[in-house]
Design a protein around this nucleic acid. Structure first.
Lengths: 118, 118
DNA sequence: CTGTATCCAGCCGGATACTG
DNA sequence: CAGTATCCGGCTGGATACAG
């Protein structure tokens, strides 16, 4: 998984280009979890959507290669990694927040996850 | 294409539910075009991303079934249909605008399409 | 013509095996 | 145990045939 990826952009439209990055069902959920403060691989797996490990690996690597996520060593357990949003990645929170706001307003029976700020 | 769709929601998170609707590479581009005032099937095909006809049919039907788009008869040519955002669908414009704003700021060499307002 | 359906290669992602 | 790779069924969507 995670091939050399599509570097062939469909157009110069910022929406089209943005969708080539975040236009799937999992990426923004990973960003959501990062924004909620999750740092360890295992933590992401606990979210209710039950992301598969290979998909999580793929999205984290993709986000890292794009500069939105940084990967470091867990100071508490050198075997583990910690992931977090970079300065660049923090900008994605606003977008995620907007998607959440829209979903809350227009999709029945939705509720923010425990711990969601604001 | 366009099967009975996934009614099985992954969670009650508004972000996850929103992504089940708009989490793909084409839906928001169709919304973008609708927001830009495109009304006819053919017009959407002219956008630089060159959406395939079956994908366009699928997205328009999905958006219609969700209540975001209404389909009517073209008064100028009874053989044609006109599509437009419903009151509900107009709310999506804000989201699209936010995605555009984010893309413009964080993705190199992006530029709004001709005709994009604001 | 406008719009939908079909075909099918290629990609996505769930399950699970594997590496260190 | 943390994280990655593989396997492979099912879906996505480009090309194109088809219907009205």
């Amino acid at each position: 998984m995670s091939k050399k990826s599509k570097s062939i952009r469909r157009s110069d439209c910022p929406i089209a280009c943005a969708l080539d990055i975040i236009g799937d069902k999992w990426t923004l959920l990973v960003v959501r979890d990062l924004a909620l403060g999750k740092r360890q691989f295992e933590s992401f797996l606990e979210s209710p959507e039950k992301i598969a490990t290979n998909v999580l690996t793929d999205r984290l690597q993709r986000l890292e290669s794009l500069g939105f996520v940084s990967k470091g060593v867990d100071p508490g357990d050198r075997r583990k990694s910690v992931y977090q949003l970079t300065e660049q990645g923090l900008q994605l929170r606003t977008l995620v927040r907007y998607v959440a706001r829209w979903g809350l307003k227009h999709i029945p029976r939705t509720a923010l996850l425990e711990g969601a700020r604001e």
